[in-house]
Design a protein around this nucleic acid. Structure first.
Lengths: 171, 171, 171, 171
DNA sequence: CATGAATGAGGCTTCATTCAT
DNA sequence: AATGAATGAAGCCTCATTCAT
């Protein structure tokens, strides 16, 4: 997307943009950083209220991700596709929270496996699959369509459970 | 992607490209069409040799997709992201085989549900998740890394089975 | 004429031109519109001070046209030859004042015929001939040559009178 | 006009054109030369059968020119506008027959003046006006319109007579 | 003779950016 | 703090021309 188009869309003069951001990279970086920060704040919040069951954690992360992708389609698609247009330095900065999410998910799945709740043989691939599936929501979900957000989240919980091989514990 | 970059990548002069394609759209279209045709030929071939068990069909499609995404990363990423830059007419032509794949997968899952082998409550979302997960391979898989292609396919079979809720039949 | 050439002639960078005009068509249109507007303002002014004799009107229009073609050769030749390179919409806008001049001349000749001063049997062709002859001045007249502007106008008055078959009125 | 377009219009391969003409200049030159030669052959023929009255000569030249402009609009407009795109050498070659026509007309008018048939005070301008008026036929005349070619010629004879100040001789 | 491939220069246009004010 | 003017690089594309065959 051109910086002209962005300026017009934001209804600011192009010169004004150069007051706040020294260049396109910085602008895009700020945009993506905001989006990613938003997303991760939401994830964090969801995890905080989730108790400490691995399933609850997984559900929190899946729910937060699905909701964000469904309700912030534009930002999500930017976040998921425009990062590659930044210079390495900026990419690194953005990867940091991204990696944090990866790490969190990795730990959740590990915990679930340790507790015997998750039975997947391929935790890394399960993690990737969970994110891929949740992220893809930004491509196809229509908020004005027949599937409600709550229903959507319910479905993705179920699919995520399947991916990690969730088995309810006998006590 | 710029036509200059494509020309440089193909090591032909930019003018030479205009001998074969009247413009950028047509070039990109031809590129994507070739890729998509390749991919679907591979899928078709895999399905043809697969027998008629829904699981076999699912595995064939997942295996073909994962292998293609892993071994044709560049084409795959183009196919998955550059379609939007084409005019509506070209997009429609490319969506046709794409929709065929969707239909095929939908039918496979339906068949598995009818036969009692697949137990998912959300066949549409399972289908989307399977594709999202397989397609994402193009983003991260490193052919020279520690995971062999066969191993990769094995993993995604397992994950796909989980997504559709595959239960082996008691006889 | 190439936009590069125009830019060089105006001694502005090619990019600078795109500040003021969104494209070649618009630039050319503006150029021609200005020229045509100038020309027609001059014609109007000449007619306004001319009294209401058809001969005076004819002389005013011929004089204004000859003077303009002789003193604005570049603009005139552009006006007379580059209109065809514009899109139909722009051409229509430019034809409007052009048609006004045609109409004016038509009316002048009609009036002269009604008053018995002009005796031509072919008013339409006389009109076209008058314009063709006056416009052609832009092709050959050399302002630094031996023929003064006043002399030139005198000659074309005479020729125009001949074309419309002007006969002085007996009183 | 592009050499590609010319080749397509003539239904020859572009390479074929380069067999017959070494370049665009030469092609255009040949085209214009043919047209101009045609035109002048026609003029010559008309003059040859015209007897030796200056009026007859004038009429022959005006008639030939008007007919050619009316029936060969494309070639005429090329001849009248594309000459400037040739290099000086070619232009000179094309000006030669052009100048011949000018000379012929000049001589005809001189003869008419000497014989007392033409009374114009401005023979050069009359000559230019005659050509300008006749040439302009190529711009506006519609062969399928209401004015027949014969009618057209009749009108331009009359106008040309007016321009040179033709007075029938009392004997 | 004739063809299709190839090319470099230049066509118009958009881009990100800088500058003067 | 903010604007519009200006710019050079690059974008896509067309041109006239050349070359190998």
């Amino acid at each position: 997307m051109s910086i002209r188009a962005i300026a017009k869309a934001a209804d600011v003069s192009m010169s004004a943009m150069y007051h706040y951001y020294p260049g396109k990279q910085e602008l895009l970086f700020a945009l993506l950083q905001d989006g990613i920060a938003d997303y991760h704040r939401i994830c964090r919040a969801a995890l905080d209220v989730a108790g400490d069951d691995p399933v609850a954690h997984l559900d929190a992360l899946v729910g937060a991700t699905v909701r964000y992708r469904a309700t912030h389609k534009v930002e999500s698609n930017l976040m998921l596709s425009e990062v590659r247009n930044l210079n390495e330095d900026f990419q690194a900065q953005l990867r940091e929270p991204q990696d944090a999410a990866t790490t969190t998910m990795t730990e959740i799945i590990s915990a679930g496996i340790r507790s015997g709740q998750f039975t997947t043989k391929y935790p890394d691939d399960a993690r990737r699959a969970v994110f891929a599936m949740c992220n893809s929501v930004a491509h196809w979900y229509d908020p004005s369509g027949p599937i409600s957000l709550d229903e959507l989240v319910t479905r993705y919980w179920e699919l995520a459970h399947a991916l990690v091989g969730y088995r309810e514990q006998a006590d």
